[in-house]
Amino acid sequence: MKILIAPDSFKGSLSAQEVANSIERGILKVCPSAEIFKIPMADGGEGTIDAILEAKKGRKVAIQAKNPLGKEILASYAILEQENTAIIEMATASGLPLLALEERNPLKTSTFGTGQLIQNAWQNLSGASPATIVVCIGGSATNDAGAGMLQALGVQFLDENGKEIQVCGGNLKEIKKIEVSNFHKPAHIEFIVACDVTNPLLGEKGASAVFAPQKGADPEAVQILEENLTYFAGLVENTFPNLKGLQHQQGTGAAGGLGYGLMAFLQAKMQKGVEVVLGITQLEHVIKKFSPQNRDLVITGEGAMDFQTVFGKVPWGVAKLAKQYHLPVIGIAGTLGKEHHILYQHGFDGLFAIVDRPMSLQDAMNQADMLLEHTAERVMRLYMLSYSL
């Protein structure tokens, strides 16, 4: 019997690798001879680099970069030499968790540090063959349409006197000219944005209206940010007529408009985060070896599974792939939330919550390792029983 364990992390409690290890221990109590494949997963958010490096041979590169407010910090990204690919989590340089609550203000923040990571990555990738940079853009503290990132890559934003502006979310309307003579995108590098957000740049579903309040913006600031993004998009699309209408495309509002900057200047392609990770980890190559006739099984999960899981979360992606090969799929979660039953219509044959008695959320998080192991043991006892009936 082959068993694939491909979970996301239980955020705030266990990494994806730790989740997989706990599930493995529970399985081996029941099926000590099972052939187990552990592939930690992620959906393009926090932990994506670590999950990929558990599955693929690569290394982390740490550099000095600016945080959202311009303070020098140590930020890192991953290089997969064999694939000639770099994986960047923008939150490591431009993320909300880098700022204290009182520092969070998208009028003042910038994606400059993300640009520094990108620049360092394209210098480290081999020019002898096609290369890829994957930018995971969850958890941002910014609302600058990626202007800060572009500035780090050589784009100059000039004021009415021809002087360069150090851009941030609050001063985009001061830009009168965009100068790209010092911006040189390597032709051999393809950019992919790992992102599940489909919001456009502007409007009631745009970056400012939907996400800026989560980053510290009050209603007045939201209005200023919206006006600034509107102005900036107009300037970009007037300067480069081939970009007309880009602001309306899905995903351009992700990460405070970073999606817009990546698509406009780096011709980045949007992909669901879990699909990017599935591709890089080559999960399908493992699943192809499985057979339902041999009682082979796929187990996935994350901290909470509910109706939102089908909108590009790891368990959904793993189940969707497994069902292409007619394999049974079990989901294990810290909690099964609202309308989780709809997951039975999306490839899941069984769903299990790890909490086995009344307890607080904190106790459940503290004991997640043991609870996962016990749940996996119960799952396997039931699974094996089904074959003996």
Rank of each mutant, 00 (worst) to 15 (best):
I5L: 13
K289V: 14
F10V: 07
E164Y: 00
C168E: 07
T239N: 12
K163R: 14
M41F: 06
E179K: 10
V135R: 02
V236H: 01
I5G: 02
F348W: 08
G203V: 05
V155C: 08
E24G: 14
N84F: 00
E46T: 10
E103H: 13
M90I: 00
Y387W: 15
A121T: 05
A16H: 11
M305D: 09
S291D: 03
E237W: 02
V329Q: 02
D363E: 14
A51G: 13
D144P: 06
V379R: 08
I342R: 07
S110P: 06
M370L: 13
Q214E: 07
I5E: 08
E35A: 15
G256N: 00
A128Q: 12
E284C: 09
S126C: 07
G154H: 10
M384G: 11
S94W: 02
N242C: 14
P32W: 02
L225V: 02
N238S: 15
K177L: 11
Q293D: 14
Q345I: 00
L117C: 00
A93S: 00
F10P: 01
F112N: 00
N242P: 08
I178T: 09
A51C: 05
A233Y: 06
N238M: 12
T111E: 10
L99A: 06
T300W: 04
C31P: 03
K320I: 15
T132L: 14
F157L: 02
A62M: 13
V298T: 03
L101W: 10
G70K: 04
S129P: 04
G253E: 02
G216E: 06
Q123V: 12
D144W: 13
M365D: 04
P219R: 12
L201K: 06
I88Y: 04
L202G: 05
F311T: 08
Q249I: 10
A254S: 12
G347L: 01
S15Y: 01
N67L: 06
G154D: 08
Q247W: 14
F37H: 12
V310Q: 12
Q282H: 09
F265R: 03
I27E: 09
R59Q: 15
I36S: 12
I52L: 07
I287K: 04
A221I: 02
K38N: 15
Q250V: 15
Y344I: 01
V167A: 01
L278I: 13
G256P: 04
L4P: 11
S9N: 03
I165W: 06
D218M: 09
T375W: 14
Q166W: 07
Y383Q: 08
Q362D: 15
T375L: 15
E160H: 09
E284I: 15
G234R: 09
K313Y: 04
N84Y: 03
I52P: 07
L14G: 01
L150H: 05
V236F: 03
K163C: 07
A304F: 11
S94F: 03
K269C: 14
V210E: 00
I332G: 02
N366T: 09
F10K: 03
V298N: 05
Q324N: 13
I27R: 01
S129K: 15
G279R: 02
S291Q: 09
I192A: 06
L107Q: 10
A255Y: 01
Q166I: 10
R59M: 11
V135L: 01
S9Y: 14
A145P: 09
L243G: 03
G216D: 12
S126I: 09
M270V: 11
Y231S: 04
G312D: 00
N67I: 05
A187Y: 10
A212I: 00
